[in-house]
Each structure stands twice: as C-alpha cells, then as structure tokens.
Design a binder for these strands. Sequence first.
DNA 1: TTGTATGCGTTATCAT
DNA 2: ATGATAACGCATACAA
Lengths: 338, 338
Amino acid sequence: MKRGKITMNDVAQLAGVSTMTVSNVINDRVRVSPEARERVLAAIRESGYQINAAARSLRSGRSGVIGLAVPQVGNPYFGMFAELVIAEARRHGYHIAVEQTGAVALGETAAVAQSRRLQLDGLILSLSTAEAESSLLQTTEQGLPIVVLGEQDPAGRFDHVSAPDEAGAAAATAHLVDLGCKRIAVVTGGNLDRLTMFTRRYNGYRTALEDRGIRPDPKLRFIVDSLTREGARSTGHRIADSGLGVDGVVALNDIVAMGVIRGLRDRGVAVPDDMRVIGFDDVPAAAYFIPSLSTVSPDHEWKAAKAVELILSRIEDPLAPPREYTAPFAIVRRESTA
Amino acid sequence: MKRGKITMNDVAQLAGVSTMTVSNVINDRVRVSPEARERVLAAIRESGYQINAAARSLRSGRSGVIGLAVPQVGNPYFGMFAELVIAEARRHGYHIAVEQTGAVALGETAAVAQSRRLQLDGLILSLSTAEAESSLLQTTEQGLPIVVLGEQDPAGRFDHVSAPDEAGAAAATAHLVDLGCKRIAVVTGGNLDRLTMFTRRYNGYRTALEDRGIRPDPKLRFIVDSLTREGARSTGHRIADSGLGVDGVVALNDIVAMGVIRGLRDRGVAVPDDMRVIGFDDVPAAAYFIPSLSTVSPDHEWKAAKAVELILSRIEDPLAPPREYTAPFAIVRRESTA
DNA sequence: TTGTATGCGTTATCAT
DNA sequence: ATGATAACGCATACAA
C-alpha cells in the first residue's frame, strides 16, 4: 500500500506485465489472458491504484463527464431534476457535473465555455435566455454536443427536450373552468414578445379560455414582480387587492403558485375557498404545501431520461439531425383547487 | 477563427512567440513584455483558444476544481448550501463540482474515490454516516484535502464545519417553553446511540428542558418514520393521534417540521393554534410556508465561506492541524410559533 | 496475447 | 524577457 500517486506503470511492474496490459484490463479492451488479468487486478488492489482522469482525458479526448447547467441548483425544480439526471447518467456509465448559470445569458454562455475548458463530453443546458443562443451556435461548431432544455432554439439547431408548456397550461386552465371559476387570472413572467416558456404557458391559458368561449381579460394577466418566492408573494398581494373578483389563478410554476397563495393568505384570502390556484411542475414540496397544490405534473423521469439519451446519441453522432421532444404530463388535483 | 481544437502552440505561432510565452501570459506567471502579451491576447481572441483543462491538470497536478458532496442535490437545504459554496469558491477562482452521495456510506466513500479519479483539488464532504470514516482516513493519507460538514469525526482528524446543533435545538426548545408550551415533543432521527446530528439536536432539546426544571418525557420523543416529507407527515399523524396532549414540537429540521405540520393538518390539528412547531435550518421555503415556519437559522453564508476557506488552506498546507468551527445562529420567530 | 514507441497539451526547468 | 526541452499518465497504432 504505497502512498502518493501510483501510476499504471507501477501496477504493471508489480504485476510483471507491460503498461498496456494494465490498460487493457482496466478498459476491458482486447482479450487478456486470465492469468495476466488476475495478476493485474491483484496489483491494482494491492497498490490502491486509481486511474488518472486527467491523463486519460488528455489522451482519449473524452472525460466521461457530462455537464448539467441549470439556473440555480437551489431551485426545487432544478434540484429534483438534477437528481434524476445524475441517476440516469450513472446508469449509462457517465458522471454529471452540475453547473450553475444564474439564469443569465452570461452564465449560460460561461457554462458552455467552461464545459469545453473542463473537457466535458457534452452539456445538458437548461436555457432561460435566448441571448445565449449565438454563443451556443458558435460552440456547437466547435464540437461540444449540447442538449437544450426549456427555451427553444427557434432555428431548431439543437436537440431539445421541453415541458408541455402550452398543453399543460391549457389543461390547468380548463381544470379551473370546469370547476366553475369565472374570473381566472394568470401569473406569468416578464417579456411576452419572444417565445419563451412564459409566453407558451400564457398562450396555453389563453387558448383554453378561448376554446371555451371565454374572452381573456387583459386585466387578469399579472406579471410576476420577480421570479422569486418574494416576488410571487407580492403578486399575490396585488391579486388580492385588485378588486377584479378573481376566483382562480393559473401560475406559471409551482414556486410562484405557492408564493401567490402565501400572498393571498397574507390578505386573508383563503385557497381554495375564496380562490383556486393551480401551479406547474409538481415539485416535491407541492404535495406537502398547505393547501396541497394542484399542478401540471410533467413526467420528470421521462424528461431526464430523454435528455440523457439525446446527449449520448449526440456524442455518438455529432452530425445527426437534431431531435425535439415534449414531455407527457398529467393534471394533479389537490386541495388548492378542491 | 479555426475550428476544432486550437492548442497553445497554434496561439504561439499566430502570435509569433513560443508556447511558454503564451502559457506565461495565460497564467500571469513571470514578467512578459507588454508587446508580447498584447500579441498573445490578440491571438487568443482571434483563434478562440480555450485552455485544455485535462492537459493542464495532468501537468500541474491541480485542476482548480473542488468537489462538494452532498446527500441529495434536490434537498432544499443542500441545494441552497451548494449555491452559496459555488458562489464563494468562484470568488477564490475555484470551480465547484457537485456530487451526490445518497446519504449512504457507500456513496460517501464513492464520492471520495471519485474525487481522486477526477483530479479534484479537494472535497467538501457533507457527511451523514460515520461508516464512511475509515475510508476517509485512508484517503487523506493519500493526500486528498477534505473538509467535513455535518457529522463529526470523533477523532478530530478533519477540518470540520458544523451546524449549531445542540445550542440551536436548545434555543428552539426554550422558545417553546417561553411561549408557555407544557408538553413539548421532539421529532428526531433513527439511531441515537452514536453522536450524530440527530443525537446532538435531541440533546439540545433535553438540556433546554432540564435547565428549566422540566423532566423530558420519553413518550414525547418521536422517531421520524423516514427522513422524507412523507415520513414526517405520517409522524405528524402519530403525534396528532397520540393523545399525549402535545402542545409544542421541536423538529430536527425544516423539511421534517413542514411535513409534521402537514400531517397535523391532515388530522385537523391547527398550527400554531392547537400546537406550536419549530424547525431547524431556515430553508428558503420556510418563510413562505403556511403557517410560516419558526426555525433555527444558522448563518449559511458563514458556513459556506468557512468551508471554502478551510478547504483552500488545507490544499495550501496539507499538514496543518485540523480546525473545527460551529456556525452562529439565530431563532427566527414566525407564524408556526405565534 | 502482449509489448514498444509515440504523442495528447500543458507547464517546470533550465538555458539564453 | 523569452525559448528549448522534457515530462506529467495514459491509450492509440503498430510490431512481435
């Protein structure tokens, strides 16, 4: 049991074979005689040898590590999603390195650059800004396989897995209509000019209303004060104080939904008695909130598995045409719309 | 703008200097003439050169990456903590790679092995099993700098940052006593034989009661059914159904506290009207829960900064004596103990 | 089946 | 201040 760094060469000497035989045993490459293999394995055990990832990566050009870049690891949705991706990648013999972009173009671009620096084999990028797009294009040209989640590349140049934004939001809205809500507000994000996740969920809301002969009232469209729990809470205050007779709220995601409910509660508005609220994502906390949160539940496992599948085939074949998938979903009815 | 891999050599040729000069410019090592530096920087920009981390790491023996191994990235506490550590490490020019151990010894040991494989410069390890200890010891001997969070190494052989478990739980309990609670239950984790986080928080509860002349009633000690939201919820059911006249609950952490409140609510027990509940950690969701959760709020920034500081000095000086720190805390009073 | 030579891209050392 | 050379540890290509 030697200390410090033991190299393949040390193992080879110990086993009385050449370095290549050790390498072959480790990588299970060519056929190695049972005796040689046994001696090598024994030498590895005995020496406590650990393969040097840097050297292997330098030589082979592959690291066995895939990056997962998310806006914030502390966000319940991305935290849960990261767990699933980590588990799925491990099943395929890959390791996930979690990056944090801060949901800004700069961070997303940096994650891409970082990925190349770190010799990642690919990057699963949860995109939230279209601004990062140009640098992405540049990057793929330089050969980093990328799978995009969330925001869509309008040009369709990347493999992409998206949430069922429109259909999910439409189903959520329909759920409220079916429950008899007459004045259904929507809480969405900032700029609705570009086709972002916000826009698509908002469009789902509109479509659902129009399909049922209800004219969407622009006054019932609330832009969340900021994409934080606090911003959602104060938006809840605004809804409560609006005097618009709101009796249902479609929130753009669960964090916002819970924040809004909290804000309503600050104003003495009870959910679901006075107002019904439905979210989007089905984060783990949703079922344990009080009231438990009705929500659009995309198939997270499916999404994670698809993202991993896509990045692996992209690594395999960089020139294949990009593929595009949308996760299936279900509406989960809980107390907040009871 | 060449495609594919541009090496330092390419940059050097482009700038009309040697590779070493490029290296020196990039690493800001020795004095380089302003003209040479300018030419090199221009060549880097023009070529889109990215340093090859594998090669650098192989040569220098350092990767600039520190591992952060946590039980689950999806856990709100660890997610939040990871965010802080990432930010702090970046300030020092280091990159964080988040690992997930699954809170099992096997995973924790694996994270350590993985860290060496991946040529991480150090590992901040949130330990939850004492079983991982032996392999840790072995590892440090082999030279991987480690800072341990959470579970304490009884032998005190590692740098360590812990939460104010005893003092925090004691203060939480005292808070309930001060509010007039007479039958204060505690919800804690499994095995109380070893000195784990559970044990220490439980001890804090006991001490606080005894200090105020209250004999801790063993019947009021509830072992959480499992360390999940669902386990906490069913523990809430048990407390509600116990007929023990519980009027206050000290929960071992916020996730458990919220789960318990949810379980109580399932049984029609209102918090804080019928029973007061206090948690531990002050996770981001705590302030937005309904009722908002009173809790022990350790200084998370402080903890993150300390962990990074410790790992950096450990990397700097592997032989320095281990240091031990406990985070300061405050009791945050919210609705759940109003 | 196994071994030898070579080079991946960078940096430490030494020389100029 | 800058350059030449070697070496980090592994795997590819080829030879034996």
